[in-house]
Amino acid sequence: MVTGTPPTGTPLEEELRRLAGTVPDPELPVLTLGELGVLRAVHVSAPGRVEVELTPTYTGCPAVEAMAADIERVLHESAGMTEVTVRTVLAPAWSTDDISAEGRRKLTEFGIAPPRTTREIDAASAAREPIPLSLAIRCPHCGSIDTELLSRFSSTACKALRRCVSCREPFDHFKEL
């Protein structure tokens, strides 16, 4: 199931959307595109012809082309679509809030601290913190909340590099966007 957007298409469009949603993210293969929340719409315009709308996580995300190619392949091979067009759309902008609960669980399991939701940050910053970016982030290895920022930018633009003060392991944190 794709989170955030209620299903509105025909049963065929829903099925194609589900299939496209099973494609793994090329850079974070632990997540599917559905869990990442980057699929925006699926329109069947004629028999065998489908248009998919995809939104990038970051403006410069180099994975978008690979995602589009994978979606085309899956819809060709598994659904017999003859013509698949993948369009990139910018609005509404993707947010880390679009990552599903299952996606967050998988990120933690994979050793990446998931992004906090806007709701969590708002609640915490209303309570005490003046700078939401520095709210406590839990170590995905040992669960400690005693972690420190090493660098705002890590292996990809969407992650920050942190270190756990308790278990001393470095880890990636999926930055809130």
Partner: peptide
């Protein structure tokens, strides 16, 4: 190294804007 990565990431964001 961390700054190497940070500056490259910022450059990539900017390149994405430039392409659009």
């Amino acid at each position: 190294l961390e700054e190497e990565v940070a500056l490259a990431n910022i450059a990539l964001d900017l390149l994405g804007q430039a392409r659009i």
